[in-house]
């Protein structure tokens, strides 16, 4: 019974694919199970891992947000720009706080519009995303900034550990900001599992009317979710600049689709109500592996897009098809078996 349920879960298949892919890569290149590859993967997971936490929460609640890359880029750019112009030398904490606040404000704008207009969040955030991006590129005239403020430069040179690869003679370092990913994952897990608000997010995605009847303030939950996504995006945007060692204001364009794909692959249903942190992490890991490690398999990188598309279709198609078949059959409207016993 338990196994049967396991076979129905996306996470299970994503897990198997990850394991199979790793073994395949190991056999072909012998470079997968090495310290530096793991460090590289962990490093590449930081940004998608953090962002997908927010995206997952939104999709669980039955919403969606495609403006977060724009929020992240705008917050990051503004923060860096402001810090440079005042020659900021203080603590990074303030910079992160500043960027997060910017993101929060933009996220709340999204939330307010979604609550008020009651139109598909996809379209609304498409519009706001266009505004944020346009604002950055047009009004702020954003361009790449090669030299970051000093506190950021210091942080981007701070590493947790370094792994050497003897055979290839290269080494990879795990940046300090990896801790942010751990914190984001831990906080999200805690929020979704152990707070009433988190359960409200699931409840909202499960049945909006029932959620309201249960006494939740549906609008407040939505404001929270979009606000959090904005704040998270602001924070992650700056993290990305630290990670890259430079400020590239357009580097996240198109990233929303990658994140949504990762979340959905991880078993989160786009219709809302279902989703797990570990599933989402696995989805993000799989996509990261495909874009990072496919080359180790000898597959040219330009196939990664194709593989991603195929995974999305297979991943969503399986559960969608099961649901469709289920709907065609009759659910037991009255307890037939019980009657026979009586």
């Amino acid at each position: 019974m338990r196994f049967k349920k396991l076979f129905k879960r996306n996470e299970f298949y994503v897990g198997i694919t990850i394991v199979a892919l790793s073994i395949l890569i190991q056999i072909r290149s012998g470079q997968f199970f090495t310290g530096n590859n793991f460090v590289d993967l962990a490093r590449a997971m930081i940004i998608p891992g953090m962002l997908t936490m927010g995206v997952m929460m939104q999709i669980i609640s039955g919403g969606i947000d495609v403006s977060f890359p724009a929020i992240a880029m705008l917050s990051m750019y503004t923060t860096v720009k402001v810090a440079l112009s005042i020659d900021f030398q203080g603590s990074m904490v303030f910079m992160f706080l500043f960027s997060t606040m910017l993101g929060l404000v933009m996220g709340l704008m999204n939330g307010a519009l979604v609550c008020w207009l009651k139109l598909p969040a996809f379209i609304i955030t498409l519009g706001t995303g266009s505004i944020f991006l346009g604002f950055m590129q047009a009004v702020l005239k954003s361009r790449n900034i090669g030299i970051l403020p000093k506190p950021m430069r210091v942080l981007s040179k701070t590493y947790l550990l370094t792994a050497h690869n003897e055979t290839l003679g290269i080494s990879s370092s795990l940046p300090f900001v990896f801790i942010f990913l751990i914190v984001a994952v831990a906080l999200t897990s805690f929020l979704l599992r152990y707070t009433m608000l988190g359960r409200g997010i699931y409840a909202l995605g499960g049945d909006r009317d029932a959620c309201q009847r249960a006494g939740y303030n549906v609008n407040a939950i939505q404001m929270f979710i979009y606000g959090t996504m904005g704040a998270l995006a602001g924070f992650t945007g700056l993290t990305r600049a630290v990670l890259m060692g430079s400020c590239q204001p357009t580097s996240l364009i198109g990233y929303e689709m990658t994140c949504i794909a990762a979340v959905v692959l991880g078993g989160t249903r786009i219709s809302g109500g279902h989703g797990t942190v570990y599933g989402t992490l696995m989805g993000a890991l799989l996509l990261t592996m495909i874009s990072n490690s496919l080359i180790l398999l000898g597959v040219p990188t330009y196939w990664s897009k194709f593989v991603t598309g195929l995974l999305i279709i297979i991943g969503t198609g399986m559960s969608a098809y099961q649901a469709l078949q289920q709907r065609k059959k009759l659910a037991g409207k009255y307890p037939v078996e019980e009657e026979k016993q009586v």
Partner: peptide, 11 residues
């Protein structure tokens, strides 16, 4: 207790 029970299918 409503006719449609107001239960959350996902919980």
């Amino acid at each position: 207790i409503y006719q449609d029970f107001s239960v959350f299918p996902n919980l």
